[in-house]
Write a protein that binds this DNA or RNA. Structure first.
Length: 496
RNA sequence: GGCGAAGUGGCCGAGUGGUUAGGCAGAGGUCUGCAAAACCUUGUACAGCGGUUCGAGUCCGCUCUUCGCCUCCA
C-alpha cells in the first residue's frame, strides 16, 4: 500500500516516494514570533505533525525542519518600513530579540500542549543572515537579481516559470489592474525584495555588501531549507495563504540558483474560520490558544482539528468543539475500560470465540485505517475507523464483561498505535488512571478505590441511600461514577 | 478584476458514478435498585435548474450563495 499525497504543484494526488530511500526531508513554514499562537497555528502544526508521525510510523526517517521567523516581515500599516517584531518591541519597550525569544517559548509551550512533536531543527532567520546574503550574491552573480540604492530585487523576468505554484503565471495580466506605475526602482512591478536597506529607526539590521539592512520576506525559507535539507527537498508544507507570493518566490529564488527542483511535494493546509468568518487581526476574532486552553483541554482541540481534513477549511465554533469533546471522552473512556478490563487466558466457548474474533478482528480495522492515512492523510476517516472499532470493543465488553488475553492485547495495541502514536489523541495510561500532575494522583486513586468499595458494599446491602449519596456528592466534586459489568469506575468530569 | 476552494441530514464533518462515513444532538429499546455510561434500533442529507448515463451528492453546463488568496498572516 503506497502513500499518496496531494501535491499543490500540479493539483493532484501523487504517489509519494522520497528522493533518498528511507529518508524524508520536510520543511514547514514556521510562525512569525511577535504574538501568542492562535487557532490557525494549531491547525497548521497539528496537521503537519500527523504527516510527520505517519511518515515515521511508515518507517521513514523524517528530517523535519521548521523555521522561526524572528526577522519581522514588513507591516502594511502606517508604520512604514517598520517590521512586526520591531513594532511589537517598541510597543512593549524592549529589545526585538527579547520579543522573539518570549514568543518563541510561548509558541512551543502551546505546541507541546497540543502534543505537536518538535521539529528536528528549528532555525531562526536572524541566525542565518550570512546564508541569506550568500544566496543573494549567487542570485546577482547569475543575473537573477540586481541591486539599486542599497536594495536588492529578484528579477521575475529572469525566471519564466515564476508563479507556477499559484497559477499566477501571467505577470502582465496581473499588472493590468494595477494603478499606473508609481515611479519605482524595480525593473518589473512583480520583482520582489531580497534585501532592504534599513530606514531610519529600524531596529533589526545587519550589514551587507549593499547596505545596512535586512533580508526580504521570502529569503529565509530558501536559505535554511537548502542549508539543512539540501537543494531539493521532498515536502514543503505551509498555509494556503502562503502559496502566493511566498512559496512562488521561494521557488524562483532557489531554482534560479540551483537549476534543480526546489520542492517535490508542496502541501498546503487550509484556513480556520470562526463562526463562518475568516479569522483576522482586523476582525478582532483571533482565537488565542492560551485563552482557548482555559476552556478546553488542548487534546480536544487537537482532536477537533483532526476530525476535518487538512485541506478543508475548518469552522471553529463553541458547539462544534463541545461535540468533539463528548466524542473524544467516549474514546478515552473506552480505552480506559479496555486497559482495565479483566482478561483470561485459554479459550472461549465456541460461539463466543467466533463472535469476539469477528468483532475484534483488528486486521480489518488496521487495513482500513492505513488506507485512510495513506490517502493524503485522511484523518477524519481514520478517526471514523477508530470509532467503529471502539463500538465493537464496548459491545463485546457489554456482553462478556471480560476479554481473552490476546484479543485485549491486540485491541489495546491498535488504539495505542493509531489513536496514540499516530494521531496523538489518546491520553497516556497513567494520565487516564490518575488525576494529572503533581498532586499525588496515585493517592487519589487509592482514596477513590476505598470510596468505590464502600459504595459497592452499600449497594450489595441495598443501602441505596448511602450509595447514591456517595455518587451524588462525588459528582458535585466533579467526579463521575459509572457502573459497568466490570465494576464501577470513575473519571473526572470535564470542566464545561 | 485575476487565481482558487466550496455549498452534504438539527449541528460539525468525510466521501464520491450503483453498497453504512464518523462524531454530537434527538427518538425508541436493552441493561441497571435508580441514574450515568455502554450497546441495539431509528434519520432516506447532498444549493437550484438543465444535461450526459442503465444509474449522479458524485461527471458536464448554467444560475444563486459562501469563503480564501492577490497586502503581513498558519
Amino acid at each position: 500500500m503506497s502513500l499518496f499525497i496531494y501535491n499543490s504543484l500540479g493539483r493532484t494526488k501523487e504517489k509519494f516516494e522520497p528522493l533518498h530511500p528511507g529518508i524524508v526531508t520536510m520543511y514547514v513554514c514556521g510562525p512569525t514570533v511577535y504574538g501568542h499562537a492562535h487557532l490557525g497555528h494549531a491547525k497548521s502544526y497539528v496537521s503537519f505533525d500527523v504527516v510527520v508521525r505517519w511518515l515515521r510510523h511508515s518507517g521513514y526517517r523524517v528530517k523535519h525542519v521548521q523555521n522561526i521567523t524572528d526577522v519581522g516581515h514588513l507591516t502594511d500599516d502606517a508604520d512604514e518600513g517598520e517590521d512586526k517584531i520591531s513594532k511589537q518591541a517598541r510597543l512593549e519597550k524592549t529589545d526585538p530579540m527579547e520579543i522573539s525569544q518570549f514568543y518563541t517559548r510561548s509558541f512551543y509551550e502551546d505546541m507541546d500542549r497540543l502534543e505537536v512533536q518538535r521539529p528536528n531543527i528549528a532555525p531562526n532567520a536572524a541566525g542565518h543572515i550570512p546564508e541569506q546574503i550568500d544566496l543573494i550574491e549567487q542570485l546577482i552573480k547569475t543575473g537573477h537579481a540586481y541591486a539599486v540604492n542599497g536594495n536588492v530585487y529578484f528579477s521575475v523576468e529572469s525566471f519564466p516559470e515564476y508563479g507556477k505554484l499559484s497559477g499566477r503565471t501571467d505577470q502582465e495580466a496581473l499588472q493590468s489592474g494595477a494603478r499606473v506605475e508609481v515611479r519605482s526602482e524595480k525593473r518589473h512591478l512583480s520583482d520582489f525584495a531580497l534585501w532592504k536597506k534599513a530606514e531610519e529607526g529600524h531596529l533589526m539590521k545587519w550589514s551587507s555588501p549593499w547596505s545596512i539592512g535586512y533580508p526580504g520576506w521570502h529569503l529565509e525559507c530558501s536559505a535554511m531549507s537548502m542549508k539543512y535539507l539540501g537543494e531539493t527537498i521532498d515536502i514543503h508544507g505551509g498555509g494556503m495563504e502562503n502559496k502566493f507570493p511566498h512559496h512562488d518566490c521561494e521557488i524562483a529564488q532557489s531554482e534560479s540558483v540551483t537549476g534543480k527542483p526546489y520542492v517535490r511535494f508542496w502541501m498546503h493546509n487550509n484556513m480556520v474560520t470562526v463562526n463562518g468568518i475568516k479569522m483576522g487581526k482586523s476582525l478582532k476574532n483571533f482565537v488565542n490558544l492560551k485563552d482557548l486552553f482555559n476552556i478546553f483541554d488542548p487534546i480536544v482541540i487537537r482532536f477537533f482539528i483532526l476530525q476535518s481534513h487538512y485541506r478543508s477549511q475548518l469552522d471553529f465554533s463553541d458547539g462544534a468543539i463541545r461535540a468533539s469533546q463528548s466524542g473524544l471522552e467516549k474514546l478515552q473512556e473506552t480505552y480506559k475500560r479496555l486497559v482495565t478490563a479483566p482478561t483470561y487466558s485459554g479459550h472461549l466457548p465456541y460461539e463466543e470465540l467466533t463472535k469476539v474474533k469477528l468483532t475484534l478482528q483488528t486486521l480489518e480495522f488496521d487495513k482500513k485505517i492505513k488506507e485512510a492515512l495513506n490517502d493524503d492523510f485522511n484523518t477524519p476517516i481514520a478517526i471514523s475507523v477508530i470509532f467503529e472499532f471502539i463500538k465493537n470493543v464496548n459491545s463485546v465488553l457489554d456482553e462478556h464483561g471480560k476479554l481473552q488475553e490476546q484479543t485485549a492485547y491486540s485491541a489495546i495495541t491498535f488504539l495505542e498505535t493509531y489513536a496514540g502514536e499516530v494521531l496523538g489523541i489518546l491520553k497516556s495510561r497513567e494520565g487516564l488512571m490518575a488525576t494529572e500532575g503533581r498532586y499525588g494522583g496515585k493517592i487519589i486513586d487509592e482514596v477513590m478505590n476505598v470510596l468505590l468499595d464502600l459504595r459497592a458494599e452499600a449497594r450489595k446491602n441495598k443501602d441505596f441511600a448511602l450509595s447514591d449519596k456517595i455518587r451524588d456528592q462525588l459528582l458535585e466534586a466533579g467526579i463521575e461514577i459509572k457502573d459497568t459489568k466490570e465494576g464501577a469506575s470513575w473519571s473526572k468530569k470535564s470542566a464545561t
